[in-house]
Amino acid sequence: MRPVTGVRPGLISGLTWLLVCQLAGELVVRLLGLPVPGAVLGMVILLALLCWRRPPETASVLRAADALLRHLQLFFVPAGVGLITFLALLREEAVPLLVATLVSWFVALALVGGLVTLLGRGEPAR
């Protein structure tokens, strides 16, 4: 049996796998000049690896991913705080900003939700 330490065993090796995929994604994006962020390509790389190796639910990479995703909102806080640097501009152009944001958000949301429901009909919806 492993000795009990402060960090759950496997968490660090899981994080290592995530970083390997991210770095691989960043490298490919830069080398090929692709228009997506490296981390998004890293997500595709990890998905391909998972489908290929089919690791059990106890695998370190799955547990590290679940641990990070439980706090996904935390990682957006600093970018959100950046809003305060635009307060003056946001106030100045409040009307075009609010209307354009809300209308385009709503139309796209309804479009995807409606189309996928319509085109995917007949499938079990769980």
Binding site: L15, L19, A39, G42, V44, I45, L46, L68, L72, P78
Partner: peptide
């Protein structure tokens, strides 16, 4: 914290 957004995005594959 911003840095962790990278591995967290990769983690969405799970």
């Amino acid at each position: 914290i911003v840095f962790l957004l990278g591995p967290a995005t990769v983690a969405l594959a799970v």
